[in-house]
Nucleic acid binder design. Sequence first.
DNA 1: CTTACTGCAAATCATTTGCATCCCT
DNA 2: AGGGATGCAAATGATTTGCAGTAAG
Lengths: 154, 154
Amino acid sequence: MEAPDSSMTPQTKARTIEQALRKRGVRWTNQRQAIIEALVGTDRHLTAEELLAEAREVDPSVSAPTVYRTLHLLVEASLVSKRVFQGDSACYEVLLGKGHHHHLIDVENGNIIEFTDEALDALLDKFAAQHGYRIACHKVELFAVPIDKKDTSS
Amino acid sequence: MEAPDSSMTPQTKARTIEQALRKRGVRWTNQRQAIIEALVGTDRHLTAEELLAEAREVDPSVSAPTVYRTLHLLVEASLVSKRVFQGDSACYEVLLGKGHHHHLIDVENGNIIEFTDEALDALLDKFAAQHGYRIACHKVELFAVPIDKKDTSS
DNA sequence: CTTACTGCAAATCATTTGCATCCCT
DNA sequence: AGGGATGCAAATGATTTGCAGTAAG
């Protein structure tokens, strides 16, 4: 697997994903093409439902089961991450071209800010090692409120 | 690493929770008592289903809707945390008497190890502050594989 | 040609809700 | 008493699966 490049265009990402899946013996269909295009065409976290709607604008024949089946393949192949925030539907996001990152969720507006940090990652790796584990994947979610009005920061 | 207030007995926790809910104008019933007892009687993360089973050993009349309704109250009151791991059912855990902690999930056995660390917390607070936020609640989940095992996954 | 992929409809599964009744306060 | 709380059963909503037809390789 080549190093992710944050300047990858959507087209490049789509092609990379297509090739990665083909390499795994997966057949390439119009529906999958539409789903991938919808997926790389946004920088937000999409629910399966939102993705279905987007994909249908490319190819109206796409159905929900196909979206879910394709998402499974993508998650399996580590091309897409699945996240379950709170009690809502799962959200999916393309991993290509962005290093793994963490989430700061604005609990007032529902905004999601992404950030990365090597020190944090190193710290997490250390804990895993101390317990005899190696991290396969990690997830950090900070539920936070904006500091602006009457609040005194800590 | 020791939790700050880990000396609370289950009985004390149960009483504290009862009083906190009563203060919010909630009525105290046998079913809720049973649910709370089941909840404080374990140190593991319970699903609603598991909690229902445990609670029924105290009071067989407890039903699933009551478990969910009570869990909502508890989460609202910040007495219990709800977590949704991967695609599974939500897990609930009493917050009383344990500092917030993080999770290391053994992806092979499904084991969950908890750990706490001030340096990590400080780092997270720093990030939030840099973005103009204050953390209300944070969640760190490490999906990891045991090191001592031959690992052939990609 | 072969068989993976698709849409549809029906099946799951956890969680929620309507409702008549019950029982804390 | 009175209104919140309960159990039951049915509703929900996201995700999955069975199946017969379709299309990728």
